[in-house]
Nucleic acid binder design. Structure first.
Lengths: 341, 341
DNA sequence: TTGCCAAACCGAAACGCTTCGGGCAAGCCT
DNA sequence: AGGCTTGCCCGAAGCGTTTCGGTTTGGCAA
């Protein structure tokens, strides 16, 4: 068995109360007492009993994420990376991160309810935001801290970490506009996701600002897989109207599909068609073979630390405005863009 | 807030003690009291507080799995499926299943230690067994229940669920021997894994029993990916000695690689080369395009329920011998085997 | 009648921690 | 000198549950 506070109290001659306060860094404990308590704790290999802590304070030090029930295989690899990232980030902050997969027919809200009622979780990381997200509504009603990866509104009233996807869409389009393109196709992510909608909005406004017409035939939503990218490209390039002279890919997998479709059509990049893409920099997707591609770039794995910070901040009761962060992105020039032929 | 035992006691006129015993189905509570307590519990939407339970009884109702730190992308999809399966299986049994990803440089044993000392987990599901597994040694020493997916020895002293991989190797080989093949190649999984070793053993003994020489050049270990399968095939078919007339694939992804390598070499299945494979029946790996392949078949997803049962059995103190289960497999005939040409 | 037993129940202690409300010095102000 | 603050500390209560030991019944045998 692990040592308890009482053991440390006995070893140091302090009271249990004071040891608790010392280890939790309260401010009416003298510095030397804190040191003494900490040393004894380490010597005795003390680990706080999370259940007892939770029972006494209402905090367990455990945070969780509920994996949505749909199984979309292409995302699996990303989920694992996310779990790894969050697990590490919380671990470094002395918290335990825990993943629970919703069952297939199960309602997301009731899964959260079950976890809260069990009395073991301090807060949640949410992914895949929706407009008017019911999970958010429920958790807010119950006063349970949360942080969202992404956001369901331009200016939500809950903590989140997101990148400015409107700007991503705008900048991707702007790169091509600056090179002189006027017919710009966009192979975007799944229609129902917020980030895809934001990027579309960016594309849309960039075109309008440039005084160009927005042709819905030049926009495709879909899963971010190679085949979807290829199919969308074939459809756009084989349409009746004038072909696009440039394409935007929502991520590198879509870009890969675009490249193979263009190769199949005998079109060269950037000679015949320019290509830009947003790169999440997910490792291990074996995209070495892709030609260098201009566009925007924001490492998804840089989300985990801010998310962890924001959730812990929420648990500790910091105001929401301090817990909303928008990450940056880079614009890279790699030679996949040229003026229209 | 959720109702507590005291609320139920107040509502029913019973004592807290008796309500607790009633809800936990102890045997010195009258049937009608049990019913009364259960009804009140439901009416008040009572959820036991896991932290309090854990503190009092030493059981939290939470079990976990620690994801090994290496990131082997081809397995990610399987991990997600496993997490889903286990999460559901434990959920159905009133337990909470929880996943914790080990950090990259982190020692597996110390991760388990941290989780146990935190006092929140009742037991662990272990995956990827090793010979003399240090996790098992540690958990057994601390008296923490565990169940292994697979096994590190033919007859381990801990609970496990596994299929008879020696028999899988033997049967795959036997199918080909019966058709008259004598030079049989085996494209197997990673060398360090137990199941691959077991299958190799089955192949080996089947050959020996048939009075045939065992040629190590006809056995390849590697990741279970399409490219590994293709490369192994090219190597075996291009060797100096006599070519194999039949190939065994460790799973369907390897089989896919074998098929494309054979096609590249202009060899027909089963006319020129026979192929058998073991099929884990993992969904979503888009193997529709594969020709029907004879061999063995055991759905990996049938492991989750037995694993959950075994771990709960271990937690409840049932003897180890009742907690060791070997799942079956099918032998399927699909036309990818013919006598050697 | 008395004594005994089993069935059904209950009070109180315990689990390890946090926190509320206070106590005791020592130093400062007026 | 009396009263206040400040810094450090402690006892005890309480979180919601399980469980140990004991008490109250009613029935049955002696």
């Amino acid at each position: 068995m692990s040592a308890t506070l009482r053991d440390i109290a006995a070893a140091t001659g302090l009271s249990v109360t004071q040891v608790s306060r010392a280890l939790n860094d309260h401010d009416d404990v003298s510095v030397e007492t804190k040191i003494r308590a900490r040393e004894a704790a380490r010597a005795l290999n003390y680990r706080p009993n999370l259940s007892a802590r939770r029972l006494a304070s209402g905090r367990s030090g455990i945070v969780g994420l509920v994996l949505p029930p749909q199984d979309r295989t292409p995302r699996d690899s990303m989920f694992v990376q996310m779990v790894r990232g969050l697990s590490g980030a919380f671990s470094r902050r002395g918290r335990l991160f825990v993943l629970h997969a919703a069952e297939d027919g199960e309602d997301m809200v009731s899964v959260h309810q079950r976890l809260i009622d069990g009395g073991s979780l301090d807060g949640f990381v949410l992914i895949e935001p929706e407009h008017g997200d019911p999970r958010v509504a429920y958790l807010q009603k119950r006063g349970v801290p949360l942080v969202m990866h992404g956001r369901g509104a331009p200016r939500p009233d809950y903590p989140f970490f997101d990148i400015d996807n409107v700007a991503v869409g705008r900048e991707l389009t702007a790169i091509l506009l600056r090179a002189g393109h006027e017919r710009i196709g966009f192979v975007n992510g799944i229609a129902s996701t917020c980030y895809a909608a934001h990027r579309r909005e960016g594309w849309d406004t960039a075109l309008r600002v440039a005084g160009l017409a927005v042709d819905p035939a030049l926009h495709e939503h879909g899963q971010m897989t190679e085949s979807v990218g290829a199919l969308a490209t074939l459809r756009m390039m084989g349409g009746d109207g004038p072909r696009p002279t440039a394409l935007i890919a929502g991520n590198m997998l879509l870009a890969k599909g675009i490249y193979s479709a263009l190769a199949m059509l005998g079109l060269k990049v950037p000679g015949d068609v320019s290509v830009v893409a947003h790169d999440d920099m997910l490792p291990g997707e074996d995209l070495m073979s892709l030609p260098p591609t201009s566009g925007t770039r924001a490492a998804l794995e840089q989300s985990w630390e801010p998310l962890a910070d924001a959730l812990i901040g929420a648990i500790e009761g910091r105001p929401v405005t301090q817990l909303q962060q928008v990450g940056g992105f880079e614009i890279v020039e790699a030679g996949s863009v040229a003026p229209p032929g």
